[in-house]
């Protein structure tokens, strides 16, 4: 018997006696009111920061001023023509020396301050980890109240890779001292900005299934 058949047969033979119905998941009352404020507060607790801009036009100047010209910056969104894209990158290692990556999250989660980023948004997944810093654009209207709400969405099955990212990488493995910037990005900044430009000619899943 193959290992597969053997294991499955043993599990069937030894299954616990009794009925164990699968519970229907109730919907609990979640965060109400200002989701942006809740998101910001909960992300701050996980070490991430939020920036509000007066309007969409302020985004490019803000990013240029903040990031400076000399640094290696890569963006995975097609909304920022002023910055080099990740499109041309074929080897995930090539992003090793990137100072800052810029990506757009599909949505945020107020309960935890988490950002939904999939292979589709990232294009090259390592942009969110190999870069020293990460800037994430987020539409303030695209925030769901809770983690349970997020998992009711079918976005999770739209690509092979999805991460809910909540702040920069962190460790407390040495005496419980919290250190932001473990193996992944050292900082994560959310900039609230509505999407203004998406290229309809570009296939959505060009880079990654």
């Amino acid at each position: 018997m193959s290992a597969r058949e053997d294991i499955l047969a043993r599990l069937r033979e030894r299954r616990p006696d009794g009925e164990f119905p699968l519970p229907v998941l109730p919907s609990f009352p979640g965060i109400e009111g200002d989701l942006v404020a809740a998101f910001q507060q909960n992300l701050a607790a996980m070490g991430g920061q939020c920036v509000h801009l007066p309007d969409r036009e302020a985004l490019d100047p803000f990013l240029c001023a903040r990031l400076g010209a000399s640094r290696l910056i890569r963006t995975s969104t097609d909304e920022l023509p002023g910055f080099a894209r990740t499109d041309a990158v074929t080897d995930p290692r090539d992003l090793e020396n990137v100072h800052t990556g810029i990506v757009r999250a599909r949505f945020g989660v107020a309960e935890t301050g988490s950002l939904f980023l999939s292979g589709r948004e990232l294009q090259v997944n390592t942009i969110a980890y190999l870069a020293q810093h990460l800037v994430v654009l987020l539409d303030p209207a695209a925030i769901v109240p809770g983690i349970a709400d997020a998992y009711l969405r079918d976005d999770f099955t739209s690509t092979n890779y999805v991460s809910l990212m909540t702040g920069p990488s962190a460790t407390a493995d040495i005496e419980g001292v919290m250190i932001r910037g473990a193996q992944g990005v050292r900082s994560l900044t959310v900039v609230f900005a509505k999407p203004i430009f998406t290229d309809p000619t570009r296939p959505a899943d060009a880079r990654q299934a």
């Binding site: 607790a45 996980m46 301050g113 099955t157 890779y161 991460s163 909540t166 990488s169 962190a170």
Partner: peptide, 11 residues
């Protein structure tokens, strides 16, 4: 409230 990364690998 959550880990910094909650990652889902499907393929």
């Amino acid at each position: 409230p959550i880990t910094q990364y909650t990652s889902h690998f499907r393929g």
